[in-house]
């Protein structure tokens, strides 16, 4: 899928964990409200835990319910590692850079 206007972008940066989950939820909700097609950039995520992972699942669910398109992109190493650990890459269906074949 390629970009299509109008596209709203949200960059998630730094800690994407229980410490910041409440704040990111607000931002993600705002982003979902702002456009029909949203891209969340995960390239600057330094740390992610279950809370962050849940936010991704929940955001995807929210988008589906609202009939919107949500894409995660630029998965950082921390995010990739977690998606790999939980075998959830397929769940999001976003293209993910494969760093090393396994």
């Amino acid at each position: 899928m390629t970009t299509a206007a109008p596209l709203h972008c949200l960059a998630i940066t730094g800690e994407f964990t229980i410490f910041t989950a409440a704040a990111w939820r607000e931002q993600m909700l705002a982003a979902l409200a702002a456009a029909d097609e949203i891209e969340m950039d995960l390239s600057q995520v330094s740390e992610i835990d279950s809370a962050g992972l849940q936010l991704m699942v929940a955001a995807k669910r929210e988008a589906t319910e609202q009939g919107k398109v949500l894409r995660f992109s630029g998965h950082s190493a921390a995010v990739l590692d977690t998606l790999d650990l939980t075998d959830l890459s397929a769940h999001f269906g976003d293209p993910v850079l494969i760093h090393s074949a396994d």
Partner: peptide, 19 residues
Amino acid sequence: TLADKVPSLSALDPEASYL
């Protein structure tokens, strides 16, 4: 990973565990 209990973002308690 059983993620089916994770609600949509608007209903999510960001500090609760669902997985």
